[in-house]
Design a protein around this nucleic acid. Sequence first.
DNA 1: TCTAATTTGATACGAATGTATCAATTCATT
DNA 2: AATGAATTGATACATTCGTATCAAATTAGA
Lengths: 221, 221
Amino acid sequence: MDNGDIAIQHTFKGRCGAKRTIMKDDSTKSKLLKAAISIFGNQGYSGGSVRQIAELANTNIGAIKYHYSSKEQLWKAVVDHLFNKLSEAIMQDFALWPSMSPRDRVVNSTRNYIYFCAKYPELNRIILSETMQNGDRLHWLAENHMRFFIERSTAWMAIAQENGVYPKEISVLNLVFVAMSAAQNLFLMAPFVEHAFRIDVFKNDQIEKHVDAVVKLLLNE
Amino acid sequence: MDNGDIAIQHTFKGRCGAKRTIMKDDSTKSKLLKAAISIFGNQGYSGGSVRQIAELANTNIGAIKYHYSSKEQLWKAVVDHLFNKLSEAIMQDFALWPSMSPRDRVVNSTRNYIYFCAKYPELNRIILSETMQNGDRLHWLAENHMRFFIERSTAWMAIAQENGVYPKEISVLNLVFVAMSAAQNLFLMAPFVEHAFRIDVFKNDQIEKHVDAVVKLLLNE
DNA sequence: TCTAATTTGATACGAATGTATCAATTCATT
DNA sequence: AATGAATTGATACATTCGTATCAAATTAGA
């Protein structure tokens, strides 16, 4: 089972000079990345400090400077890492798609996406945080990750729409944003749901319940 | 037409000692509130500084200390103000509800809510920002505003569900969060949509298109 | 007009921030 | 064991933060 470990690309020279990558999950660098995911995901970029991150990683700010050179570079490493995880999650069952009906493809990718949103809520929190601020980091996010992701989603959604999975009259862009937010929002709001209703939306049965709700609400029978 | 002006409660003694309220939209206090809505809505609480707010309001930090005593009190005033606007927007056509079908009531409140989300996207940004951080301000938000709002929405949604507007099998809580996020998200993501697709989601025709999309996707025919 | 309350503007201060520097330590390779 | 590179830990620095203080300016009431 995937335990969500962080794999740091640690390059070293092989005997013929080729680069290889190994996992060092207990390295300072990966501990820093994991801590940065948590801090940036909960406090945002300006709300989180490098001292918080260093403390959470049981090291100090010098290590951040050394491994990531600056706060902004560390943030970019976090985003790259999380988008890689997203891509893995989305593509997980891609090989099975040819044998699935158009509707089942949508159900499958919806379920995989919702499970990703529950496993890594930090990515959507970071995206929203930066979208609100609308600064240079959003533009970097948009050009390096989001645009590609949204355009692929839009293309898939359009195909599903043509196959009658979604009503044809709706603008594809609205469709994408409604479907994505329906999947994400419950996990973005998890701290409130926990506080107000004592419900842990990250539990497996709650996630499944949410998948059922989204599928039943958004997909034509 | 409602121009979204900010009404500051300015109390003074009438001739029989009773308190009255008047509007002073050009007062320093209301200029500060308007600036604070923008700063807190875009930068979040920790991301926005009182100096930014004072500068945007064409005054200085002394005025903030005087009128709102602290950054946190100013933030609470912003939240109170925006939730009042939300309540106004939701209750706008309440008198007409008895003459409407259950489905039309949902369509009406959905439309009003979406128009509110487009007019004051700052409220949902503030809520999401604080929910992410999950600190004392979220608890204040939850206890003073959100819990009431969500519980009312849940009650209404349950009635709509009983009347066949929504599928009965879905958990009401999931229904509420899916419906709310479907309405909000496009406007939360407005800076990205503008950047990536050159679409201004705050234009009236875009808002109407979004209303149609949400209604068609979420409500059974 | 005079007086007192209200409001504004400028400055000061300690705390926290990101970055930079550099000695101490650890590690890998010979 | 020796050596040099890689990594860590501690400190310093300029900047920005929220808050506090207080004199100057404005306003309101008699």
